[in-house]
Design a binder for these strands. Structure first.
Lengths: 190, 190
DNA sequence: CCGAGTATTATGACTAGGTACTAAGAGTAG
DNA sequence: CTACTCTTAGTACCTAGTCATAATACTCGG
């Protein structure tokens, strides 16, 4: 035995993990054993064959893509909306949204939810944030669900400005508040 | 002919585009032609076989992964930093950052760059945004490069607050300004 | 209606990268 | 020596193709 079986299998796992595109033949060469041994190892470790591994990687990318597509227009999921009046969205804080060190959501995600809700509530082709005054009341942590509530406070058709107030909560506890001054193209249908 | 050859090939292209995981057999079934016809079509259109398509998708994911890792901690790329004093980062506006309709960068990305720069400039274990007052001076468009400059204006060790001003520019033209009040854990080394 | 040319389908041989199974030899521990 | 694990070898089979060749089917101009 060049290496103990356990040692080889440990290395095999990590090797495949950081290069799922490696074939059994290449692995056999790398560990100086027969292809059959590699196959037995994979069987024992329940590591799928090359093609299945590649497929999994590809499928995950596809999932991520659909997950990031709705994210493209609105951060969080809008669950209620009355144009030019009010809107509510929810946003679940996942691992990718927090600082690794302390599991606290990075501010820009909480802001992004509020900001995109402010954009969404406006009944217009073009809505952009002009100014914002925001406060982070308490930090949001991993796995918490943030509910953002937007309310249109004032519409100034002349200036083409709409004022939106957004308050975000986790379990009825306020975590964020923001006043948004939104630019809108003046030619509103209403 | 059920459909003209051209029509079928047009549909074939788009079908494979939005589902690269489809086999020739499934395609043959779908278009009511033989598998051989599908293969001839792919040959003419130079569409690779299933396995190659999946591999490409998987490889792209791998590339994306390394690209999105540095993005995890800071939005934009920090090119200069003096802790507790100033910092500069650049952020290139790509297709995924803009509204499809008008190619204007969504506000939260510009905010995210500024916010994460404000976090980065602070010489502390823990830095969180408490409040922010921001203005979007003009809209940022696709392919523009935003340069954000952060300057620490005041450090209040007693209250555990640091004030950071961030101004962002595209070609020396200001696009964003923000005053950030940052929370920091009081036990600073300095 | 016939032939030319295009389009389609069929057939056979081969490939990579496997699975599943059987068999056999090497080394080692009791 | 026997029992056992570990390793290697070999076979048949699989999927989703490739390439090449041949035989049809359709369609249009004359």
């Amino acid at each position: 035995m060049r290496r103990s079986k356990k040692e080889r299998q440990r290395l095999l796992t990590s090797t495949i993990e950081d290069n799922p595109f490696i074939t059994d033949e290449e692995l056999a060469e790398k560990f100086q054993v027969s292809v059959q041994t590699i196959r037995l190892d994979r069987l024992e470790l329940s590591i799928p064959e090359l093609r299945e591994r590649i497929k999994t990687v590809a499928e995950k990318r596809f999932e991520d893509e659909v997950r990031s597509l709705p994210l493209e227009e609105v951060i969080g999921e809008i669950i209620d909306i009355e144009l030019d009046q009010s809107a509510i969205s929810i946003f679940d804080v996942k691992a990718e949204h927090v600082f690794k060190r302390n599991q606290i959501a990075r501010g820009h995600h909480v802001f992004a939810q509020a900001n995109s809700l402010a954009v969404a509530v406006i009944n217009d082709e073009l809505a952009l944030t002009a100014k914002a005054n925001i406060q982070f009341k308490r930090s949001v942590k991993l796995n918490e669900r943030v509910v953002a509530k937007a309310r249109v406070t004032k519409i100034d058709d002349h200036a083409g400005r709409t004022f939106v107030e957004v308050n975000s909560f986790v379990n009825n506890e306020q975590v964020f508040s923001g006043q948004f001054e939104m630019y809108r193209s003046k030619n509103n249908k209403g």
